[in-house]
Simulated scan of single mutants.
Amino acid sequence: MTKSPLSPDETRVLQQGAALKKPLARAAAIGRANGLGYVVFGALTTVMAAPGLDWIHLAEGALVTVVGVLQRREAPKLERGSPQAASDMSRNEFWLMIGLAIYCLARLFVLTPETTALSLDPRLARASGGDLDGLVDAVHGILFGSLLLVTLLYQGGMALYFRRRIPAAERYQRETPDWARATLGSL
Protein backbone atom coordinates (compact mmCIF):
# COMPACT_ATOMS: atom_id res chain seq x y z
CA MET A 1 0.00 0.00 0.00
CA THR A 2 1.43 3.34 -1.05
CA LYS A 3 1.32 6.30 1.24
CA SER A 4 -0.84 9.22 0.10
CA PRO A 5 1.13 12.32 -0.88
CA LEU A 6 -1.51 14.36 0.94
CA SER A 7 -1.61 15.01 4.64
CA PRO A 8 -4.75 13.98 6.55
CA ASP A 9 -5.76 17.66 6.72
CA GLU A 10 -5.35 18.08 2.96
CA THR A 11 -7.38 14.92 2.36
CA ARG A 12 -10.13 16.24 4.63
CA VAL A 13 -10.16 19.60 2.79
CA LEU A 14 -10.47 17.80 -0.56
CA GLN A 15 -13.29 15.61 0.73
CA GLN A 16 -15.17 18.63 2.08
CA GLY A 17 -14.59 20.50 -1.17
CA ALA A 18 -15.87 17.53 -3.18
CA ALA A 19 -19.01 17.42 -1.03
CA LEU A 20 -19.59 21.15 -1.57
CA LYS A 21 -18.97 20.83 -5.31
CA LYS A 22 -21.38 17.92 -5.83
CA PRO A 23 -24.63 19.97 -5.99
CA LEU A 24 -22.91 22.49 -8.26
CA ALA A 25 -21.79 19.74 -10.63
CA ARG A 26 -25.34 18.35 -10.68
CA ALA A 27 -26.77 21.81 -11.45
CA ALA A 28 -24.17 22.32 -14.18
CA ALA A 29 -25.11 18.97 -15.75
CA ILE A 30 -28.77 20.00 -15.74
CA GLY A 31 -27.83 23.35 -17.29
CA ARG A 32 -25.79 21.64 -20.03
CA ALA A 33 -28.59 19.18 -20.82
CA ASN A 34 -31.26 21.91 -20.86
CA GLY A 35 -29.01 24.11 -22.96
CA LEU A 36 -28.53 21.37 -25.53
CA GLY A 37 -32.29 20.77 -25.69
CA TYR A 38 -32.92 24.49 -26.08
CA VAL A 39 -30.34 24.79 -28.88
CA VAL A 40 -31.83 21.84 -30.79
CA PHE A 41 -35.45 22.96 -30.32
CA GLY A 42 -34.64 26.61 -31.07
CA ALA A 43 -32.63 25.76 -34.18
CA LEU A 44 -35.39 23.49 -35.50
CA THR A 45 -38.01 26.17 -34.84
CA THR A 46 -35.89 28.76 -36.64
CA VAL A 47 -35.22 26.50 -39.63
CA MET A 48 -38.90 25.59 -39.95
CA ALA A 49 -39.97 29.26 -39.74
CA ALA A 50 -37.35 30.59 -42.17
CA PRO A 51 -38.90 29.57 -45.52
CA GLY A 52 -42.13 31.50 -44.89
CA LEU A 53 -40.39 34.30 -42.98
CA ASP A 54 -42.65 33.68 -40.02
CA TRP A 55 -41.19 36.43 -37.84
CA ILE A 56 -42.88 35.35 -34.64
CA HIS A 57 -41.50 31.83 -34.84
CA LEU A 58 -38.12 33.10 -36.04
CA ALA A 59 -37.91 35.29 -32.92
CA GLU A 60 -39.09 32.45 -30.69
CA GLY A 61 -36.53 30.07 -32.19
CA ALA A 62 -33.76 32.64 -31.86
CA LEU A 63 -34.63 33.30 -28.20
CA VAL A 64 -34.63 29.60 -27.30
CA THR A 65 -31.38 29.01 -29.23
CA VAL A 66 -29.59 31.96 -27.61
CA VAL A 67 -30.66 30.88 -24.12
CA GLY A 68 -29.46 27.35 -24.88
CA VAL A 69 -26.05 28.60 -25.98
CA LEU A 70 -25.79 30.83 -22.91
CA GLN A 71 -26.74 27.96 -20.55
CA ARG A 72 -24.12 25.70 -22.11
CA ARG A 73 -21.51 28.45 -21.81
CA GLU A 74 -22.28 29.14 -18.13
CA ALA A 75 -22.55 25.50 -16.97
CA PRO A 76 -18.77 24.85 -16.70
CA LYS A 77 -18.37 28.07 -14.71
CA LEU A 78 -21.08 26.95 -12.29
CA GLU A 79 -19.36 23.60 -11.90
CA ARG A 80 -16.18 25.47 -10.93
CA GLY A 81 -18.20 27.28 -8.26
CA SER A 82 -19.02 30.62 -9.84
CA PRO A 83 -21.92 32.35 -8.04
CA GLN A 84 -22.19 34.69 -11.05
CA ALA A 85 -22.76 31.71 -13.35
CA ALA A 86 -25.63 30.51 -11.14
CA SER A 87 -27.12 34.01 -11.24
CA ASP A 88 -26.70 34.23 -15.02
CA MET A 89 -28.28 30.81 -15.56
CA SER A 90 -31.22 31.82 -13.38
CA ARG A 91 -31.65 35.04 -15.34
CA ASN A 92 -31.45 33.16 -18.66
CA GLU A 93 -34.27 30.84 -17.59
CA PHE A 94 -36.30 33.81 -16.36
CA TRP A 95 -36.01 35.64 -19.70
CA LEU A 96 -36.85 32.46 -21.59
CA MET A 97 -39.94 32.11 -19.39
CA ILE A 98 -40.95 35.72 -20.09
CA GLY A 99 -40.39 35.36 -23.84
CA LEU A 100 -42.35 32.13 -24.11
CA ALA A 101 -45.13 33.48 -21.86
CA ILE A 102 -45.49 36.55 -24.09
CA TYR A 103 -45.61 34.27 -27.13
CA CYS A 104 -48.32 32.10 -25.53
CA LEU A 105 -50.36 35.10 -24.43
CA ALA A 106 -50.10 36.63 -27.90
CA ARG A 107 -51.25 33.35 -29.46
CA LEU A 108 -54.14 33.14 -27.00
CA PHE A 109 -55.42 36.71 -27.23
CA VAL A 110 -53.97 38.44 -30.31
CA LEU A 111 -52.91 35.91 -32.92
CA THR A 112 -56.05 33.79 -33.09
CA PRO A 113 -56.16 30.81 -35.48
CA GLU A 114 -57.45 31.11 -39.00
CA THR A 115 -59.92 28.41 -39.95
CA THR A 116 -60.55 29.33 -43.57
CA ALA A 117 -58.27 26.61 -44.93
CA LEU A 118 -59.77 24.07 -42.55
CA SER A 119 -63.29 25.13 -43.50
CA LEU A 120 -62.72 23.92 -47.05
CA ASP A 121 -62.99 20.29 -45.96
CA PRO A 122 -66.66 19.46 -45.31
CA ARG A 123 -65.69 16.34 -43.32
CA LEU A 124 -64.06 18.57 -40.68
CA ALA A 125 -67.17 20.71 -40.49
CA ARG A 126 -69.38 17.64 -40.00
CA ALA A 127 -67.02 16.15 -37.38
CA SER A 128 -67.13 19.37 -35.38
CA GLY A 129 -70.92 19.47 -35.42
CA GLY A 130 -70.90 22.35 -37.86
CA ASP A 131 -68.89 24.62 -35.56
CA LEU A 132 -65.40 24.22 -36.92
CA ASP A 133 -64.35 27.67 -35.71
CA GLY A 134 -65.41 26.78 -32.16
CA LEU A 135 -63.51 23.48 -32.29
CA VAL A 136 -60.36 25.14 -33.60
CA ASP A 137 -60.62 27.90 -30.98
CA ALA A 138 -61.02 25.32 -28.20
CA VAL A 139 -58.02 23.25 -29.34
CA HIS A 140 -55.99 26.44 -29.80
CA GLY A 141 -56.87 27.63 -26.29
CA ILE A 142 -56.04 24.28 -24.71
CA LEU A 143 -52.74 24.03 -26.59
CA PHE A 144 -51.41 27.50 -25.80
CA GLY A 145 -52.92 27.58 -22.31
CA SER A 146 -51.12 24.32 -21.53
CA LEU A 147 -47.89 25.59 -23.06
CA LEU A 148 -48.15 28.74 -20.94
CA LEU A 149 -48.65 26.68 -17.77
CA VAL A 150 -45.74 24.37 -18.58
CA THR A 151 -43.53 27.36 -19.37
CA LEU A 152 -44.33 29.10 -16.10
CA LEU A 153 -43.77 25.93 -14.09
CA TYR A 154 -40.68 24.62 -15.88
CA GLN A 155 -38.73 27.77 -16.74
CA GLY A 156 -39.86 29.44 -13.52
CA GLY A 157 -38.79 26.37 -11.57
CA MET A 158 -35.44 26.26 -13.35
CA ALA A 159 -34.86 29.96 -12.67
CA LEU A 160 -35.47 29.31 -8.95
CA TYR A 161 -33.32 26.16 -9.05
CA PHE A 162 -30.29 28.05 -10.37
CA ARG A 163 -30.97 31.04 -8.09
CA ARG A 164 -30.84 28.68 -5.10
CA ARG A 165 -27.39 27.46 -6.18
CA ILE A 166 -25.83 30.89 -5.59
CA PRO A 167 -25.30 30.34 -1.81
CA ALA A 168 -23.83 26.88 -2.52
CA ALA A 169 -21.38 28.38 -5.01
CA GLU A 170 -20.45 31.16 -2.58
CA ARG A 171 -19.86 28.60 0.18
CA TYR A 172 -17.73 26.44 -2.15
CA GLN A 173 -15.62 29.49 -3.06
CA ARG A 174 -15.33 30.60 0.56
CA GLU A 175 -14.60 27.24 2.22
CA THR A 176 -12.52 25.47 -0.41
CA PRO A 177 -8.98 26.78 -0.90
CA ASP A 178 -7.74 27.57 -4.41
CA TRP A 179 -5.42 24.55 -4.49
CA ALA A 180 -8.31 22.23 -3.56
CA ARG A 181 -10.62 23.75 -6.20
CA ALA A 182 -7.88 23.36 -8.80
CA THR A 183 -7.33 19.74 -7.77
CA LEU A 184 -11.05 18.96 -7.81
CA GLY A 185 -11.40 20.69 -11.19
CA SER A 186 -8.71 18.46 -12.68
CA LEU A 187 -10.38 15.22 -11.55
Rank of each mutant, 00 (worst) to 15 (best):
A19V: 11
K77M: 05
V47K: 04
L63Y: 02
T116N: 11
A27C: 04
R171V: 15
G52M: 13
H140F: 09
W95P: 08
S87G: 05
T115N: 05
A43K: 01
R107D: 09
V136P: 13
F162C: 09
A62Y: 15
G42N: 01
V39Q: 00
F144Q: 15
G35I: 01
L24N: 10
S7T: 08
F94T: 07
A33V: 13
D133I: 08
G145T: 02
L160F: 14
T2N: 13
A62G: 10
L6H: 15
S128P: 09
G81V: 06
R165I: 12
L118F: 01
V139S: 14
R126W: 08
P76F: 03
L124D: 15
A168W: 10
T65D: 10
T116W: 12
Q173N: 13
D133W: 03
A50C: 08
A182R: 14
G31I: 00
I98M: 03
R107A: 10
A33K: 11
G35D: 00
D121I: 05
S7M: 05
G35Q: 01
P51F: 03
K22R: 12
P51C: 09
Q16T: 13
V139A: 14
G37M: 01
G185W: 03
G129I: 09
L70C: 06
P51W: 03
T151S: 06
E93W: 03
E74D: 06
V39D: 02
L36N: 04
G81T: 06
S4Q: 11
K3A: 11
V47M: 02
Q155P: 13
G42C: 06
A25W: 03
T45A: 06
S90G: 00
G134V: 00
K3P: 06
E79S: 05
L143Q: 15
H57C: 09
G37K: 01
L53S: 07
G156L: 00
L78E: 01
G42V: 02
T11H: 11
F109Y: 12
T151F: 02
T45S: 05
I30G: 07
I142C: 15
L100Y: 05
H57K: 09
S7V: 05
V110D: 08
A33W: 13
L58M: 10
D9I: 04
D121N: 13
F41Q: 09
P122W: 04
A159R: 04
L108D: 09
V64L: 04
T176E: 14
A62R: 12
R32Y: 02
H57A: 10
V40T: 07
F162D: 09
Q16I: 09
G68Q: 01
D88S: 04
A101P: 10
P177T: 02
L153M: 03
T112L: 07
L105Q: 08
Q71C: 02
N92C: 05
K22H: 12
R126A: 11
V66K: 00
T11R: 11
N92L: 02
V139L: 14
L143N: 15
M158I: 14
V39W: 00
R163F: 03
G35C: 01
A168F: 11
L78H: 00
F41M: 11
G145I: 01
F162W: 07
V150S: 08
A106L: 07
P83D: 03
A127Y: 08
D88H: 03
A75W: 00
D9H: 02
